[in-house]
């Protein structure tokens, strides 16, 4: 079990005990004793205490370690100084490969420390390739450690409705997928969008400043239970009920198990679902968008005609 670029002890406190490390399973009757845990990170977080092996790598060297692991797994020769660049003794990397191959069922949980640093989605792709290639030796999988509540649900819903998990462009009437081109930060930093609907997120608090500046320039609409940083720079804010606390529905766990929500409170506000539906119905009452309609050559056609 490899945790890479994540700190579950502080960010997913029940991950060890409820799902991954200490639970007893059919083939792991002794729970923790039947498992080996490895942590790969750039600093020693509280999660390192739970690990059997902690590999502290130099910042931004994730892709290098993935590449070395992939080479060693296949039995290829690796230059001795490759490990030094990563910041590890070569023997530790060899030990890790040994552990991975000796496992009956291995998993790599990768966090934002991997997917948000130098290399970005190439790092994620590398980890997925490594897990795929490990299947020549043993059962091996990879799973992202999802931060927010139902972000897995967003992947699943977009996948079954458009065929792609995120960053889907529907401008041409059919879905197109290209991370880096149709992903939010890139779009906003380039200034491509001329309106934005934000729901269940607060990009005004988390995104790079050029992206936030663009959100403030264009008409931004925010649906959120609170008046957020993004709400303050938006033209429209609508307060909604809190998912899971006062709004019912379904949420996906990070291993893609859908779970029903059991709200304990009754909110005075409408749910996100109701508000988005009302916006959609309001859009349907308006003339359809056509290329050029917003330019000089107006051409109005109604929906449903």
């Amino acid at each position: 079990m490899i945790y890479w670029g994540g700190n579950p002890a502080e960010c997913h406190p029940r991950h060890f005990t409820k799902y991954s490390l200490t639970q007893k399973g059919k083939f792991t009757p002794n729970g923790r004793k039947d498992r080996t845990m490895v942590l790969v990170d750039i600093r020693e977080t509280p999660s390192a205490k739970a690990a059997d092996l902690f590999l502290q790598i130099r910042p931004g060297k994730d892709f290098e370690l993935i590449s070395v692991l992939r080479a060693l797994v296949k039995g290829q020769r690796v230059r001795a100084d490759a490990a030094a660049e990563i910041g590890l003794p070569m023997q530790q990397v060899h030990d890790l490969v040994g552990m991975m191959k000796a496992a009956r069922f291995g998993i790599i949980f990768f966090g934002m420390g991997l997917s948000m640093t130098r290399g970005k989605h190439m790092n994620s792709a590398g980890v997925l390739m490594l897990a795929a290639e490990m299947n020549a030796f043993t059962k091996f999988v990879a799973m992202p450690m999802r931060g927010h509540g139902n972000v897995t649900g967003a992947d699943v819903v977009m996948r079954y409705s458009t065929g792609y998990p995120f960053g889907v462009n529907l401008c041409r009437g059919y879905p197109r997928f290209n991370p880096g081109e149709f992903s939010t930060v890139d779009l906003l930093v380039r200034g491509d969008n001329d309106a934005c609907l934000v729901l269940g997120a607060d990009p005004g608090a988390t995104m790079p400043q050029p992206a936030i500046d663009h959100l403030a320039r264009i008409p931004t609409i925010v649906l959120d239970p609170k008046v957020t940083h993004t709400s303050r720079l938006a033209r429209v804010h609508i307060t909604t009920a809190v998912t899971g606390v006062s709004a019912p529905g379904t949420a996906y766990r990070m291993d893609e198990i859908p779970l029903p929500l059991r709200p304990a409170l009754k909110s005075p506000y409408p749910t996100d679902e109701q508000v988005v539906r009302r916006i959609r119905e309001a859009v349907q009452r308006r003339p359809a968008w056509l290329p050029g309609r917003n330019g000089k050559h107006g051409n109005l056609v109604s929906h449903g005609m």
Partner: peptide, 14 residues
């Protein structure tokens, strides 16, 4: 809008 963006969706229901 010519190119509206719908973004977020991590703290909302399916």
């Amino acid at each position: 809008a010519n190119m509206p963006l719908v973004y977020g969706m991590s703290n909302v229901t399916c």
